[in-house]
């Protein structure tokens, strides 16, 4: 029988996942830069405590409000703590807050969005209206309210940031699931004996990931800004814990009198982190999307 079905098309070697990542990086230098920036952030987050030249909490009354120098690269603050050490150590906390908040909103948002998009009907109507209601609030004010009501802890900042981000994921995934629920591959998955839940979880949902990756990465940046904002206005992380938002808040009082380094350096760190995540999005999408593979 094979004589009738001989295949004349050439067989080319396929690409491995690693080769694909290397290709994405090489093709788009911005992605490469953003991944390098992310690597820097991760190394600092993990090893910040050992890298810091001074104890971030130790005050030194003999070296108060000193400008940047070779000993204190970023200067010292109003109680003589080394700003450089504090910026380094703060990285872990800020990244923790944003990664956890974003993961939480991604998981809950995907669940709600996938269910609403797949089954539709009254379930979709109810969920969508609830999410619309959340989106109708000024989101930062809502986050402030949640933290103020639940109490001033790191966990509550994470919950507040997660809650205000859920509607964005739910909406995006709802739309992506909706256009794919009756696609050819979903129908053939049903023919293969998959139950509806399996079709959704293993066939439709994974195909929605590429656009979600862009959202995820942008959101990490916003989450850091949000957490820093909450700390800045005094809700959230409490001093003397090193955290970029608090440090900017504390430093802001000294800018007028000329001690700019207290606010500027944690601000730059914040900017660096947010910028990294914003750049990361497209590259992350290309890596997750199997269709960009050769």
């Amino acid at each position: 029988m094979n004589s009738t079905v001989t295949l004349t098309e050439p067989v080319q070697p396929s690409q491995s996942a690693l080769q694909h990542i290397i290709y994405v990086m090489r093709e788009n230098p911005v992605t490469l830069v953003s991944f390098m920036m992310l690597a820097v952030l991760v190394v600092i987050a993990v090893a910040g405590h050992w890298l810091a030249p001074f104890d971030p909490l130790a005050s030194d009354s003999s070296a108060v409000l000193q400008p940047p120098s070779t000993t204190h690269w970023f200067g010292t603050d109003n109680v003589g703590r080394d700003v450089f050490s504090r910026v380094l150590v703060a990285t872990r906390l800020d990244l923790q807050i944003s990664v956890m908040a974003v993961s939480l909103s991604f998981v809950i948002g995907s669940l709600l969005g996938a269910v609403a998009g797949y089954w539709g009907g009254w379930l979709d109507v109810c969920l969508s209206r609830i999410l619309d209601t959340i989106m109708a609030f000024p989101l930062f004010v809502l986050a402030m309210g949640i933290v103020a009501a639940l109490g001033n802890t790191v966990e509550n900042i994470i919950y507040a940031t997660a809650i205000i981000n859920i509607p964005f994921y739910a909406r995006l995934i709802r739309a992506e699931v909706n256009i794919r629920r009756d696609s050819g591959f979903a129908v053939s998955a049903r023919l293969s004996g998959n139950s509806e839940i399996r079709v959704l979880a293993f066939h439709v949902f994974p195909n929605t990931l590429p656009p979600v990756m862009v959202q995820l990465s942008l959101n990490l940046g916003w989450a850091i800004l949000n957490a820093a904002g909450l700390s800045f206005i005094g809700l959230g992380v409490r001093p003397p814990t090193p955290e970029w938002g608090i440090m900017v808040a504390e430093g802001s009082q000294y800018i007028v009198s000329g001690e700019w380094w207290m606010a500027v350096f944690p601000g730059l760190a914040l900017m660096f982190a947010v910028f990294t995540f914003n750049l990361l999005g497209d590259g992350l999408r290309d890596i997750v999307d199997p269709r960009t593979r050769k």
């Binding site: 050819g184 998955a189 269709r291």
Partner: peptide
């Protein structure tokens, strides 16, 4: 459409 009926992932 074989392309559409095969899960791209």
């Amino acid at each position: 459409d074989a392309g559409d009926s095969l899960n791209p992932r």
